[in-house]
Amino acid sequence: MSALLEADALRVFYRRVEGLHRASLRVAEGAIVTVIGPNGAGKTTLLAALMGLLPCGGRARYAGIDLAGESVEARVARGLCLVPERRELFGDLAVEDNLRLGAFTRTRRVDRQMARDLESVYARFPRLAERRSQAAGTLSGGERQMLALGRALMARPRLLMLDEPSLGLAPRLVRDVFRAIAALRAAGVSILLVEQNARAALQVADYGYVLETGETVLEGAAAELAAHPRVVATYLGLSGQTARA
């Protein structure tokens, strides 16, 4: 498999965010890759840098082009999309308008497809269809996450980056979200997943990286990583005891 995204020694030094020193990773076409690590390790910074929201050093290539100098909007137009931790929805606008705006980069070309994409998002998340004319700000936490995912899907992403999709969701909803992620991969979308819920992330992913204090310190196939003693101790169990439990 060829690498869709390849980041080599990414550095971000920006005083308002967690720093990034040497983060390197590859996302193969059609794979789910997860980045796990403690709070403050720089996971969100990594995604923001890949998205172009923060200036960074190092090299990043996506779909054969060098990302340096590409604007956020140009990256979106090329199918690199981010669902951020804070969701960043348009609270005053209706759910459907949020979704339509998700397809903003494509609107000049295809209007027919827009309707079809909208229907497929509604099919995926029926709750959104029920609330299509409601303002996004009135949605519950789980619905907001669905809307954020749906909005990103409207851009027809090739690589979808998800920052803490399970954040603040009840366990049942977390399961729904991870099922949706698995379904997306089946539909051909590659996924880069950042999660504090390491166990769930490693269950759904093919490959994983561990990010600590701004560096990727460990990588491997998701199953191997899930069994790695260091990962077990730090991220999966509360301590050695519970890892056994």
Partner: peptide, 23 residues
């Protein structure tokens, strides 16, 4: 209009607007 909504979106949430490709 979509452009009108894009303006409103930018007003409501600048980062969100960038993430859907509104420059």
């Amino acid at each position: 209009s979509l452009y009108g909504k894009a303006l409103r979106a930018t007003a409501v949430n600048r980062i969100g607007a960038r993430l859907v490709g509104v420059r």
